[in-house]
Structure formats: structure tokens, C-alpha cells
């Protein structure tokens, strides 16, 4: 049924039509084309523009449209950009780890221990994430703040006399907030991959004398790895560019590359440098993802 090049295509309108109706590929592409156009115009074209911009230069309010590598050399010469990107990657990696370690047992619980109403549990888990992202992050600022919920609560209970200052405005606050904000994104893929596991494989391992723990390590965990990988990508990639959370709860020590990029398009007014930082961040994230995927492939080969 697919369009073979040898198929005679007559130049008449009827001929094209017959060919079109016969070729599954052609009809598929035709149906897909509006969506593809949206993605090409809305994503690929802008990324090309951003890349071009990163090789131009800002001169006060004007942009000089001649090729230069200045913005990229600025990244490597001024340590601050490099350090903040490194910090962003580290924070996001840590967020990813914490989110998955916290989410996995819950997904496991729903998949293996809840007999009835699994869907109700999934809904229960996702409800907090249907409320405004901005307000959820903001709620953490209110909870962790100097005069916030935790501090005032502990003082009212008489457990502390002075507010704890280490709760807010540091990378830990960013990690807590993001581990909360992205929890559902981690729980769902892990749950799906655990749910898919053929139960008889686990029973077989137990019948053959493997302990419950070793069955988990050698059967359940490797089989749920696709969900874990999907979850880590879905959490890691977007959080590297996070802007809202570091702004609200990060303080000076929690600034991430998203804040720097934003400032280049705002107060600092240096679009080309901002573009270059975006491109560098994107490439770094892609590289980190490749390392992660390569690492898991290696791990699988070793275990499997």
C-alpha cells in the first residue's frame, strides 16, 4: 500500500488523486502536516533565529548583525555564567534524584499494594498539581519563610524561640519546592511501568528461592527502569531552565541559569548574550541526557 517510486503518477488531477488515496504514507503526512507546520514555525524557526542571534552583538539598544563569537567566549571567560550553569545542572540533578527516590515507593505502593480504586489514588496524587504552579511555589515560600508557617508554628508550640533562618533562600529550598512541584510528573511514568510488569515474573523469582528484596533488585527494578528514565528526563530537562522557583525561594545562593537568561532579556539588556547562554544551556542539557541514557544502557547490560 505504501507509495512506491515505480508507481506511475499521471499528471492529471484524477491521477494524483488516485495515487493520493492509494498511498497510506501520503494521506498520513497530509493529516499530520498542520501539526508539523505548527511545530516547525513555532519551534524550529525560532530556535534558528535564537542561534543566529547568539552570533550577533549588542551595542546599547541596537543589535549589530555581523558574525562574532564574542558571546560564547564571554561564557568561558567570565566564570559567573559557567558557575551558575554548573549549579543549575547540579540542583536539577539533585531535584531529579530526590523526586524519583520519593516518588518510586508511592508508585510501587499503588501498583502492587492497592487492590481497589487505583485510579482514585492516581487522582488523589495528581490533584495538588492541577492548581496554579505559581501559587504552589509561592505556598512553599510562605511555609519556609522567616515568619512563615513552619517557623511560626514551631514558635507557637514552644519548640524554638528564634525563627530558623536556614529554611528559605538557599538551594535546599529550591530542591524541596521542585521535588514537590514535579512529583506527579515522576509518579505517573513510574507507576505505568510498574503496572505493566507481568506479575508471574515476580512470582517465578520468588518460587525459585529469591528473597523479596533480591526479587525487587533483580526483577522489579530493572523492569521498571523505562518509567524511571522517562521520569528523570521529564523532571531534569525542564527544571534546569526553571525561573519561578529560584526567583521566589532561591535567594542569592539559589540563582539558576534561567534567572541569568531572563535578566539578559530584561534589565541587563543583552539579547545576543542571552541567546548564547540559552544555546549553551540547551546543549549542556542534551549532553547530560546522553550521559544519563548511556549510563543506564551500560547498567542494563551489566545487570541483564
Amino acid at each position: 500500500m505504501s507509495a512506491s517510486p515505480s508507481e506511475p503518477v499521471r499528471a492529471t488531477r484524477g491521477g494524483v488523486r488516485v495515487w493520493f488515496m492509494r498511498s497510506e504514507s501520503a494521506r498520513g503526512y497530509a493529516l499530520l502536516s498542520p501539526t508539523l507546520v505548527v511545530v516547525v514555525l513555532g519551534l524550529i524557526f525560532p530556535i534558528v533565529i535564537l542561534t543566529t542571534l547568539s552570533f550577533w552583538k549588542q551595542d546599547y539598544v541596537d543589535i549589530i548583525r555581523t558574525f562574532t563569537l564574542e558571546n560564547y567566549s564571554a561564557f568561558f571567560e567570565k566564570k559567573i555564567y559557567y558557575l551558575i550553569l554548573y549549579r543549575s545542572i547540579r540542583i536539577s540533578a539533585f531535584v531529579t534524584l530526590v523526586t524519583i527516590v520519593l516518588a518510586y515507593p508511592l508508585a510501587y505502593f499503588i501498583a502492587f499494594h492497592v487492590q481497589k480504586n487505583k485510579i482514585m489514588w492516581i487522582i488523589l496524587v495528581t490533584i495538588p498539581f492541577w492548581t496554579s504552579y505559581l501559587l504552589r511555589v509561592f505556598a512553599w515560600k510562605v511555609i519556609l519563610g522567616y515568619n512563615g508557617v513552619i517557623n511560626s508554628g514551631l514558635i507557637s508550640l514552644g519548640l524554638i524561640s528564634e525563627p530558623l533562618e536556614f529554611l528559605l533562600y538557599n538551594p535546599t529550598a529550591v530542591v524541596i519546592t521542585l521535588a514537590h512541584a514535579w512529583a506527579a510528573v515522576a509518579i505517573l511514568p513510574i507507576y505505568v511501568s510498574l503496572e505493566k510488569i507481568d506479575r508471574s515474573l515476580i512470582e517465578a523469582a520468588r518460587d525459585l528461592g529469591e528473597s523479596a528484596f533480591m526479587t525487587f533488585v533483580r526483577v522489579t527494578l530493572p523492569l521498571s527502569l523505562p518509567g524511571v528514565i522517562a521520569a528523570s528526563l521529564l523532571v531534569f530537562i525542564p527544571t534546569v531552565g526553571e525561573y519561578v522557583t529560584p526567583t521566589l525561594v532561591g535567594g542569592t545562593r539559589g540563582i539558576m541559569i534561567g534567572n541569568i537568561i531572563q535578566s539578559m532579556f530584561g534589565k541587563a539588556l543583552n539579547w545576543p548574550l542571552g541567546a548564547a547562554l540559552s544555546i549553551i544551556s540547551m546543549l549542556t542539557v542534551t549532553l547530560a541526557v546522553c550521559v544519563l541514557l548511556g549510563g543506564t544502557r551500560w547498567f542494563r547490560k551489566k545487570v541483564g
Binding site: P46, L50, I237, P238, V240, G241, G258, F265, A275, S278
Partner: peptide, 13 residues
């Protein structure tokens, strides 16, 4: 799988 901020500024540009 692209950080939203990068999506945002590339469209803005």
C-alpha cells in the same frame, strides 16, 4: 523537553 524559558525567549526573539 525544552526548558520553557528557552521556548519563551526564542519565540520572543
Amino acid at each position: 523537553v525544552i526548558p520553557e524559558i528557552i521556548l519563551g525567549i526564542s519565540l520572543l526573539m
